[in-house]
Design a protein around this nucleic acid. Structure first.
Lengths: 156, 156
DNA sequence: GTTTTAGTACTCGGATAGGCCGTGTCCGAGTGCATCTGG
DNA sequence: CCAGATGCACTCGGACACGGCCTATCCGAGTACTAAAAC
């Protein structure tokens, strides 16, 4: 089980967009250059974010991406879901319904799926409880120079 | 992000081994037949469980697998870790250390990695809090016929 | 009848191919800006 | 000098290859049982 690395890219880019400010649009190429990422592939991730209404895109010259909502109303779960999709990691295939072990009269919920679902829920709850604003506040506390630095780099 | 389906196989097989009883060894072929799974591939998963000391294997005729510990001392996290590996789903690549955005003076922990780590921890805590014994108890409550059914099928 | 011994069938275990999804790249549609031209 | 038209450069957006990991399979090493043979 491995999460797409696009998630890391997406979160960092969202943070940078937040610090840059929604009044400036930043192109995918410029966002990618900041971390030396492949711009075309990052563009793909940004499209996923746009589809879920996390960032807004504008084409043409002076176009690019900007944060569609306030950082305080975007959770990490929103970003992860946009990149990874909404389906949970554990997909119950209901193997207990196949073969000699199958019991047609058994209509109960798969106990394994239930337990895995609860764990997945705890994971999601944790991610949903942390907004981009929270993460930004944490960074600003431990590395106060970063926001100004980012803002300057993306606006000049 | 998708979990290997071997996890589902492994958990169900562990439950069946527990109900069968540690005094009987069950071959991978027989375990696979119960759910019509490819036996050779299931064998691979069982080997992973054996490496982590969850099941014990004995070769030769009348050999097979049996639960190495009491079901109450085997958590779902143990099984998931044995199949999926110990590494967390989110792997921080530290992209913020590359490109123009890199700040050599910044020695802080990546805030994104930290948040993801906390969510991963919550997930693991939930899995570690549920043992095979708990799952068995749940099944025995909702489907009391299953344990006897399994025991009979695997011992005869 | 008992002991030894060879054979055999069955098990796990690791080494070996195929398929799908994440990764990476490319080019086309659309848009705003700058420039040029005519009045 | 000003308005309109034209071309252009830049952007996103989706369609197209590549690679790695999960899936699936096979065969070999080892073991306990069986049966036969010798004593």
């Amino acid at each position: 089980m491995r999460m797409s690395e696009g998630v890391e890219w997406a979160v960092h880019c969202c943070l940078n967009l937040a610090w840059t400010g929604a009044e400036h649009a930043v192109s995918a190429a410029r966002l990618a250059a900041y971390y030396e990422l492949p711009s075309a592939y990052l563009n793909k991730q940004l499209q996923a974010l746009a589809r879920d209404g996390i960032v807004a895109s504008t084409p043409g010259p002076r176009g690019g991406f900007r944060l569609a909502r306030a950082p305080e109303s975007i959770t990490l779960l929103d970003v992860v879901t946009a990149i990874e999709g909404p389906r949970p990691a554990f997909r119950c295939a209901e193997i207990r319904r196949r073969g000699p072990g199958a019991d047609p009269a058994d209509e109960t919920r798969c106990a394994v799926d239930q337990a895995m679902g609860q764990a997945d829920l705890a994971w999601r709850r944790e991610l949903a409880g942390r907004t981009l604003g929270d993460v930004m506040a944490g960074v600003e506390r431990t590395a106060p120079a970063v926001p100004e630095r980012v803002h300057r780099w993306f606006t000049t």
